[in-house]
Computed example of a mutant assay.
Amino acid sequence: MRSFFFRCAFALVASLPLAALSATAADAYPSKPIKILVGYSAGGAVDAIARSVGQRMAATLGQPVIVENKPGAGTNIAVKALIASPPDGYTLLLAANALAVNPSLFQPVPYDLERDLTPVSLVGRVPVVLAVREGSEIKTLAQLSAATKAKPGTISVATPGNGSTPHLAMELFQHTAGLSWRHVPYKGGAQALTDVLGGHVDVVAVNALEALPLVKGGKLRVLAVMSPERSAVLPGVPTVAESGYPGFESSVWYGFVAPAGLPKPILAKVHEAVQKALESSEVRDQLAAAGGVALPGAPELFGKLVKDDAARYGKLIREANIKPD
Rank of each mutant, 00 (worst) to 15 (best):
R125D: 13
K151H: 12
T118N: 14
P127I: 06
K149S: 06
D116V: 14
T118K: 08
V132L: 12
I138K: 12
L144I: 03
K149L: 15
K139M: 11
R133S: 15
T148I: 06
P127C: 07
E134S: 13
T140C: 11
A146L: 11
A146G: 02
L117P: 05
L117Y: 07
D116F: 11
V120W: 05
A147T: 10
E114C: 02
R115G: 03
A146R: 13
L144E: 01
L141M: 06
R133I: 05
S145L: 03
S136I: 03
V126F: 09
R133E: 11
T118S: 11
G124W: 05
Q143S: 15
E137K: 15
V120A: 02
E137I: 01
E137G: 14
V123L: 02
G135Y: 07
G124F: 06
D116M: 14
V123Y: 01
G135I: 07
R115L: 12
S121T: 00
S145G: 12
V120F: 04
D116G: 09
V129G: 08
T148P: 03
E134D: 07
I138C: 07
V128Y: 02
R133M: 06
R133K: 15
V132Q: 10
T140K: 14
V120K: 06
T118V: 13
R125L: 13
S121Y: 01
A150D: 08
K149C: 01
R115I: 06
I138F: 06
K139Y: 08
G124H: 08
L144V: 05
A146K: 15
L144K: 02
V128K: 01
L122C: 02
A142L: 07
G124T: 06
A150G: 00
L117K: 15
K139W: 05
A147Q: 09
R133L: 04
V129R: 07
G135P: 04
R133F: 03
E114I: 03
L141V: 04
L130V: 07
V126G: 10
V123G: 01
R115W: 07
I138T: 13
V128G: 02
T118D: 08
K151D: 09
I138Y: 04
T148N: 15
A146N: 08
V123N: 01
D116A: 12
S145R: 13
I138V: 11
Q143T: 10
T148Y: 02
P119H: 01
S121E: 00
V132G: 04
K149H: 07
V132D: 05
Q143A: 15
A150I: 08
P127R: 09
L141T: 03
L130R: 08
P127F: 09
E134M: 12
L144T: 04
A146C: 02
A131R: 05
A147N: 10
E137W: 02
I138G: 06
